[in-house]
C-alpha cells in the first residue's frame, strides 16, 4: 500500500473515531507523501557477510572495523562489562564456536579472537519474540531495529543465541567519548540496539562502515559483504571456494554471517 493511501486510511480511521469525540485527532498529511529510496542505493536479494578468519588473524589486535562502526553509529564506550553496548566486537574462537573446538585444534585458531556481530538470521528468534514489531526482517534479509518502537522489554536479548544485542541501561551520551557524530542519532535509555548492516549507508550506495575500513586496512576479501541471493556474487563465490562455519547452526536460525576458516 502506498504512502498516500495509507495516510488517507489512517486519517479516515482517526477521523471516524475523532468525529464521535469531536476532537481533532487525525490530521491528514499534506497530500503528496511519496517516499522513494534514494537514487544510487545498494540493493540485494539477501545481504550477507563472510569473514575470512585467517586473513583477519594476520592482523591480530586490529580494531579498525570495530572503531569505524562504533564511531559511525555513536556507540558508547562503557567500561562496565555489565552495561556494555557493542555492535561488533571480538570473542575467543573457542567461545564463539563451542561445539567446533577440540583439544588438538590449531591453537593459532582456537585460542584467537574472531569478530562477532548480529548474524542477520534468516529465521531470527529476536523477531519472533518482539511484542511490538520493533525488530523485523527486511525483504533484503537485514534484521532491522526500530528504536522508536522498542519498549525495552529485552525479550529479543533473551531470545538471541549469539549475545548480539545490547540494552541501554542508562543514557548513553555521556559515554560517547569520541565526540557525537551529528548525522547519526544516539539512542535513549531503555531501548535495545544492535548492528543493522548499515542500512543508512547502503541506502546511499556505501558499503557498511566496517567493510569499507577493512577493505582499506586489510585489503579486499577479509570482510566480504554482498548478495547471497545472487549465484555469482563475490560472497557466494568465496563461500563456494573455501570451508566456512556459521554460529550455532543446529538452532535453525540460519545465520547470514559466515566464517571462512
Amino acid at each position: 500500500m502506498d504512502q498516500t493511501r495509507r495516510g488517507f486510511l489512517k486519517a479516515a480511521g482517526c477521523a471516524a473515531i475523532g468525529a464521535g469525540l469531536a476532537l481533532p485527532i487525525g490530521r491528514a498529511v499534506a497530500g503528496a507523501v511519496v517516499a522513494d529510496p534514494l537514487p544510487g542505493g545498494l540493493t540485494a536479494k539477501r545481504w550477507a557477510m563472510a569473514l575470512n578468519v585467517r586473513k583477519c588473524l594476520q592482523r591480530d589486535g586490529c580494531r579498525a572495523c570495530i572503531d569505524a562502526c562504533h564511531v559511525e553509529h555513536n556507540v558508547p564506550s562503557i567500561a562496565d562489562v555489565k552495561r556494555e553496548i557493542k555492535w561488533v566486537w571480538k570473542e575467543p574462537f573457542k567461545d564463539t564456536f563451542q561445539t567446533e573446538v577440540h583439544q588438538h585444534m590449531d591453537s593459532a585458531l582456537s585460542e584467537k579472537n574472531v569478530l562477532v556481530l548480529c548474524n542477520h538470521c534468516d529465521n531470527p528468534p529476536c523477531v519472533r519474540v518482539c511484542p511490538t514489531k520493533a525488530t523485523w526482517k527486511r525483504p533484503d534479509g537485514i534484521v532491522m531495529m526500530d528504536e522508536h518502537r522498542c519498549i525495552g522489554c529485552r525479550y529479543c536479548i533473551v531470545a538471541c543465541p549469539y549475545g548480539s544485542r545490547s540494552f541501554n541501561w542508562q543514557d548513553p551520551r555521556p559515554f560517547i567519548t569520541t565526540g557525537i557524530r551529528v548525522e547519526y542519532p544516539t539512542r535513549t535509555k531503555g531501548v535495545v540496539e544492535k548492528c543493522t548492516f548499515c542500512t543508512e549507508r547502503l541506502a546511499k550506495g556505501l558499503l557498511p562502515a566496517c567493510v569499507e575500513v577493512c577493505n582499506k586496512v586489510a585489503g579486499r576479501g577479509t570482510m566480504i559483504f554482498g548478495d547471497a541471493g545472487e549465484v555469482n556474487s563475490e560472497i557466494v563465490r568465496a563461500l563456494r571456494a573455501g570451508f566456512s562455519l556459521r554460529r550455532k547452526p543446529a538452532l535453525g536460525t540460519e545465520p547470514q554471517v559466515y566464517y571462512i576458516v
Binding site: C150, I151, G152, N168, T188, K189, G190, V191
Partner: peptide
C-alpha cells in the same frame, strides 16, 4: 521491568 514504560 520495561525500559520505556511510556511506550507500553
Amino acid at each position: 521491568d520495561i525500559g520505556q514504560p511510556y511506550r507500553m
